[in-house]
Design a protein around this nucleic acid. Structure first.
Ligand SMILES: [Zn+2]
Ligand SMILES: [Zn+2]
Ligand SMILES: [Zn+2]
Ligand SMILES: [Zn+2]
Lengths: 130, 130
DNA sequence: CTCTATAATGTTATATTATTACATAGTGTT
DNA sequence: AACACTATGTAATAATATAACATTATAGAG
């Protein structure tokens, strides 16, 4: 049975490579990097990615179709995430979202929505590039 | 020369079908709907979509790879947009973003980013479905 | 232990989304 | 007319994601 704590073999392999990366990884890039570990086909990667996203271990950067490891342990609960994306150096950083999360969930209440999660992507220039 | 005010033929056709739709439209769905108007191939649609997004006339819902007409005239300036997405009925609504926009841009300042635009997608249940 | 149900994995094929590359046609300027 | 520039048309292909089905591992129940 799948437990939150115990990842399966393929999930471990995929999470490991995402955690070691300094940038968001795309599914097919992950695939080509894990072929030596016995993962041969897209569904194996996508299945692992789906579960890891559900668990909050990784997030999908929707505007890039790429995946990053969660940098905030609390996302495991909230499943909401915010990122800043530099349009020059492509650096993606997860924003510590406790404040923003509080603001946005109250905002969701206000507009009459039963809020579950959100995805927020900021675009612009990072500290280094601006 | 391309002016903001004057859309080209293909841009008009694509914008028209997006504005008439009550739900986000995907590129290939747009394509199949405009074949009778002489648009035959994906690049014609994608080119129009790109320009319309740049102008702020439409937005891409990144989590759905789909496009909606802008419901706030001010997005033409800010290029930032926020949406609520119902996970039950799939309804997508653009949130009037003046307040949220102010908050988020100040937040971006705080984290040291030179902010250009953001994309925010709320997931949950809409008024009807909750 | 053996049967059975379930989860996980493996594999092939295919669907969906998006872009590259190049050819053609219109538009305005000199 | 010659030129630069924008827009359009077309074919091919790249990149992203899923469907469908076969096989293997695991854990309880009896
Ligand atoms: Zn996170
Ligand atoms: Zn940067
Ligand atoms: Zn808008
Ligand atoms: Zn709904």
């Amino acid at each position: 049975m799948q437990r939150q704590q115990n990842l399966t073999k393929n999930q471990k392999i995929v999470l490991d490579i995402i955690e070691k990366s300094t940038e968001p990884l795309k599914a097919y890039s992950i695939l080509s990097n894990v072929k030596k570990k016995g993962i041969n086909a897209p569904p194996q990667v996508y299945r692992a990615l789906d579960k890891l996203v559900d668990m909050g271990k990784i997030h999908k950067i929707e505007s890039k179709n790429a995946f990053v490891a969660c940098q905030n342990s609390n996302c495991k609960v909230s499943k909401a995430a915010a990122f800043s994306i530099c349009e020059s150096c492509e650096e993606v950083t997860e924003i510590d979202n406790s404040k923003i999360s509080k603001y946005l969930s109250s905002f969701a209440d206000k507009i009459g929505m039963k809020y579950k999660k959100y995805n927020l992507e900021f675009f612009g220039l990072c500290k280094k590039c601006k």
